[in-house]
Design a protein around this nucleic acid. Structure first.
Ligand SMILES: [Mn+2]
Ligand SMILES: [Mn+2]
Ligand SMILES: [Zn+2]
Ligand SMILES: [Zn+2]
Lengths: 156, 156
DNA sequence: TTTAAAATGAGAATAATTCTCATTAACAAT
DNA sequence: ATTGTTAATGAGAATTATTCTCATTTTAAA
C-alpha cells in the first residue's frame, strides 16, 4: 500500500496519538496519500484520491483534518499563488527541510533541499537576528522562487 | 493627496504607458491607494478605500486591474496563509527589496529590508545556483517567516 | 461490552475571485 | 477640439475554495 518505512509511518501515526487525536480512517487516508505521492496536493486532489479508498472521507472531513494535521505539524500547507492551498507530508523535525521553485506557467513545484549551499545555516542565523530585532517569535518559514520551469521555457 | 515624490509616481504611471495600458481612473486609484498606505491590502480593502474616491471602480475592476498591475510588475501579490491575497506597491527594480514576518495570531505583517545581514547577496547567489541546477528561470521570490508577534505574545 | 466524547459526512452557507456583456472612457488621428 | 476605434469599466451572475451545522457514527477507554 505504501513504500514508506514503518518507522516513517509510525512517526506520523504516533504523533497523532500524542496529541490525543483519534487515529481515524480519513486521517490515515490523508497521511497515506500525502506520504505516497510525496507531492503537493490541493484539498480537492486529496479528496479525489481518498474517494478511491473506502472510507476516504467527505470533503469537509478532509478540510477539517488537514487543518488539524497542519496545526500539529504532520502536514505542511502553503499557497502557490493561485488562491488554492497545497499540502504536503511533513518531514520529521530532525530531517532536512526544503524550499520551492514554482513555475508561473504550469504551476508545477520543484522541491530543493535547504542543505544546498548551506541555506539552512543562513536561515537559522537570519531567524535569530530577526527575532531579536522585531521581538517576534519565529516558528517556521517559507522560501519560494517563482519563474518559468525548463519545460515551459521550451514550448513557448 | 499623496506624499510620494513625483519621481516615484511617474515611474508607476509611465510603466503603465510603456505597456500600452491606458491610465484610467481606477488604475490611478489603486496605485495611489497602495502608494499612500505602504501596507499590504486585500482586494476588498482596496475596493473599500477606492469607493471613497469618486470613480474608484467596481470590485471586478479592482481585481482585473490588480492582476494586470501584478503582471507588469507595478504591484506585488502574496498570500499570508489565510486564503486571501494581499497586494502592496512595487518598488523600482533598483530599490531595496524586502521580506516578511507574518503573525499567525493577528495576521499582521512586518516588512524587513533584505539589506539586513546581506540577505540580498545571499539570495542573488542562491538564484544563480538554483537556476543552473534546475534549469529554471527565476523571476522573483518570496521569503516569509511565520510566528507570533510581540503584541500577540504578551496578551494571553 | 458499554459508554462518553470525538469525529464523520452530507449539504448548506460563506467568502474570494472570475466571468459576462452592455455601456463608457481613453487617446490617437484627424 | 472632435471623432472613431478600441480598451476598459461596472453591475451582477457564476464559479471556486473553504467553513459551518448538526444528526449520526466511530473510537478508545473503562
Ligand atoms: Mn515541497
Ligand atoms: Mn511587504
Ligand atoms: Zn512550467
Ligand atoms: Zn500578532
Amino acid at each position: 500500500m505504501t513504500d514508506l518505512s514503518d518507522r516513517e509511518i509510525s512517526w506520523h501515526y504516533n504523533s497523532l496519538n500524542k496529541y490525543c487525536c483519534r487515529l481515524t480512517k480519513p486521517r490515515r487516508a490523508i497521511l497515506d496519500i500525502l506520504s505516497d505521492t510525496g507531492r503537493h496536493l490541493s484539498a480537492d486532489q486529496i479528496y479525489k484520491e481518498a474517494s478511491k479508498i473506502s472510507s476516504g472521507g467527505g470533503l469537509s472531513t478532509i478540510y477539517r483534518n488537514l487543518e488539524l494535521l497542519v496545526r500539529i505539524g504532520l502536514v505542511w500547507k502553503f499557497e502557490a499563488g493561485d488562491n488554492k492551498a497545497r499540502y504536503e507530508i511533513a518531514k520529521r523535525p530532525d530531517e532536512s527541510h526544503h524550499h520551492h521553485l514554482i513555475c508561473k506557467k504550469c504551476n508545477s513545484i520543484i522541491d530543493y533541499s535547504d542543505s544546498i549551499g548551506n541555506e539552512k545555516d543562513f536561515i537559522r542565523e537570519r531567524e535569530k537576528k530577526l527575532s531579536s530585532i522585531y521581538n517576534f517569535k519565529i516558528e517556521n518559514h517559507s522560501i519560494d522562487f517563482f519563474g518559468v520551469c525548463h519545460t515551459c521555457s521550451k514550448n513557448k
